[in-house]
Simulated scan of single mutants.
Amino acid sequence: MDIKISVVLPVYNVADYLRKCLDSLVNQTFKDFEVICVNDGSTDLSLGILEGYALTDSRFKIISQENQGLSGARNTGIEHVQGEYVLFVDSDDWLEKNALELLYEHVKGFNSEITMFKFKFFNNDTSEISESPFTNLEVIDPSLYTGNFSYYDVLDIIFKISHAPFNKLYKTSFLRDLDAKFLHGSYYEDLEFFYKVFLKAKKVSVLSEYLYYYRIRDDSISTSGDEGSFDIFNILESTNQNLIDANIFEEVKQEWLMFIIVNLKFVYLRLNDKYKDKFINTMKEKYEDYELNNVVLNENWHYEDKAFYLTILDAENYREFNLMFEKNSYEILAKHYEILSNEYKKQIDELTAENNYLKEKFNGSITNRFKKIVKS
């Protein structure tokens, strides 16, 4: 079989969700693909489930290894890829049944190194399906959908594009030429991998279709708040260097500084309390290294991000930080609503004055016409 697409599937203790993922692959309308299942030291029934599918479908290949984490499992998968293109799928998620067919038809026409597509969130607790500007790629101008583009065409939104690896099809030769790997043993490796690869791509395209469902569950790595969360600092430093190497740092500097704050806030708010003092101190240590002293606050900043930034240097511990963060948030909101209220008042006053003018003019006209009728 001529393998067109290799699906890299890291698997670690997901027995409750794995069959739905595997079924979505078995039932693909496109047939010329392989699934590289990397059993990353699972201790539940995951391996047995994989073996059952591999027995009946030769496209499923199992590689078992001691636990190396998500990045390590993906890297193992990359080493065994035989297809022209690579798709990363998380083992608790699933694909639309025509996903691979649509992707291959698209990429053969565009010859892209990276193809992005839309996805939706699935809430594991409520079964609610949702989307956002992050998942539906609406930040990318539709005019770019008709051909390939590069990072330089989207500098204004470069930090608003989804950096998830699972909603992108990669050309295998492109990844191998870069020797692209996920940062081993690190959290937030998706962020580092995306910018490392995206900033090297000359041909990026968008397939404007929803092809993937991303499961949100409380026990996933992305929602944990343990000591591994400190990896965000290394990830940001590495990405900062990638921007410098691409000669775009100065052009995107203010957007990048805001992106740093957004990510630090994201991690801090999910962090276990026992690590928060250390996290605050680390933010202070990195403050000048990240050039956060050069931040220019403007209306593009969300009020919470602005409040978080203003709190970093002033708080001594996490309890003080939390109180000051809340206080700054309320003050920024209050000022915003005060400005908004004054603007509305100004508009109301202008409309009232205009209305009085028209009323006086209209009534005067009627009175004059009435006098003329009486005289005649």
Rank of each mutant, 00 (worst) to 15 (best):
R176L: 02
F193Y: 14
E79H: 02
K335R: 11
L25W: 00
G72E: 05
N317A: 09
K327Q: 09
Y170S: 06
N242L: 08
Y12T: 05
D44W: 05
S173W: 04
V86L: 15
K372Y: 12
F249T: 00
L313Q: 14
F266Y: 13
I3D: 00
E189V: 04
D218G: 11
L25F: 03
I78C: 03
L297H: 01
S329I: 03
F194C: 08
I216Y: 05
E250S: 14
Y212Q: 06
L95W: 13
G48W: 08
Y318F: 15
E34P: 00
V8W: 01
K4H: 06
L257Q: 02
I235A: 04
N67E: 05
Y85D: 01
L45D: 14
V154D: 09
N247H: 12
S130Q: 05
S208M: 03
K286A: 06
A164L: 12
P142I: 11
D93T: 08
R319S: 08
E34A: 06
Y152S: 15
F370W: 11
N342S: 08
V252C: 01
K20S: 08
I161P: 00
L243Q: 12
A334R: 09
K120T: 03
V374P: 02
N27L: 15
L264Q: 00
G83V: 04
L264H: 02
K346C: 08
Y275L: 08
L155K: 13
K306C: 14
